[in-house]
């Protein structure tokens, strides 16, 4: 649904984005992570047809953002990292203005606006002036505004920044609902764990370059170069540790508490099966055998260490 090919953007001598290659499937939620100034907003602005890249191409549903901006605008709902609202307009009038801007017929607007306000939990603020709403409410109203023309793709630049914990949770819930509606979502944040819950894939960008991209449950393994397997036993954890220590693909084994083993593993899935059967065939009481998602915060710090800050 979204594809960039060697996308680059320069501001004078400063390279904001450098040879970025992204591929985001329809219906997936892609988390775009990176420290401040990494190039996330620039990439999103290009996809939103607001910037022309210095080189490379960007496509939304097959449409080139430079050659077919009108088509792309029809397909996307864009929410920038900072945006203002108009004074002296109520929430309904605010959405009505954008409905007009997207040529939505007047007779359809009332129902549409009511539904959108309900989706973002702002029905009770329908007649409130938008400049009197809290930041969290404005962000939710901004999200409703993005959805006014029922776009297939949502480009959300740090939608949860500056929100208090409650507002963040509310925003997450709405995004999960949108994911359920089949929207393709590109969402950015400079906090990786914040995105992990709602994203299918994560891309980490720094200094304009994509340094890691993987499904959210594999990003830690891809970054660290190994997976972490957690083995939960009823007893005899030390015996299990001694047994798997020298197995193929095992880098290290750490005992956590009295019952858990954490295995740094570089082998493939067949090797994992062999490891499990080795434990079971030796009579060890295995309760659970799973792959750890990894400490995302640690992953983020490892990958982006020192560069760009």
């Amino acid at each position: 649904m979204i594809r960039t090919v060697n996308l680059s953007m320069k501001y004078g001598k400063f390279r904001a984005v450098h040879d970025l290659n992204l591929q985001i499937e329809a219906g997936s939620v892609f988390g775009f992570v990176g420290p401040n100034g990494a190039g996330k907003s620039t990439t999103m602005s290009i996809l939103a047809t607001l910037l022309a890249p210095t080189s490379g191409q960007a496509y939304v549903d097959g449409y080139d953002v430079i050659q077919n901006p009108e088509e792309v605008r029809r397909l996307i709902g864009y929410m920038p990292d900072f945006f203002g609202v108009y004074d002296n307009l109520t929430a309904v009038e605010y959405l009505d203005f954008y409905a007009g801007a997207y040529n939505i017929p007047v007779e359809k607007r009332e129902t549409l606006i009511r539904d959108l306000l309900e989706l973002v939990n702002l029905s009770m603020k329908a007649d409130a002036y938008v400049d009197t709403l809290s930041r969290g409410m404005k962000q939710r109203l901004g999200l409703a505004r993005c959805l006014i023309h029922d776009p297939k793709v949502l480009i959300l630049d740090e939608p949860a920044s500056g929100l208090d914990p409650r507002a963040r949770i509310e925003m997450k819930e709405i995004l999960k609902e949108l994911k359920g509606m089949g929207k393709t979502i590109l969402i950015s944040s400079h906090i990786l764990p914040e995105l992990a819950e709602m994203c299918d894939h994560i891309g980490i960008i720094e200094q304009g370059q994509l340094i890691a991209m993987a499904p959210v449950d594999q990003i830690a393994a891809q970054v660290a170069g190994h997976r972490v397997l957690r083995v939960k036993l009823r007893s005899r954890a030390e015996d299990a540790q001694a047994l798997v220590q020298d197995a193929k693909g095992v880098q290290s084994v750490t005992l956590e508490g009295k019952t858990d083993l954490l295995i740094a593993y570089t082998g493939d899935e067949e090797g994992q099966v062999a490891l499990l059967s080795r434990l079971v065939s030796n009579g060890l009481p295995v309760l659970a055998f799973s792959e750890e998602a990894g400490n995302l915060e640690e992953v983020f710090l490892t990958v982006t260490k020192g560069v760009g800050s």
């Binding site: 607001l50 864009y78 900072f82 954008y98 801007a101």
Partner: peptide, 13 residues
């Protein structure tokens, strides 16, 4: 200044 121009430019206007 109000940071509404970019949003306006992504609409059909």
């Amino acid at each position: 200044e109000r940071q509404t121009l970019n949003i306006l430019l992504t609409t059909h206007l």
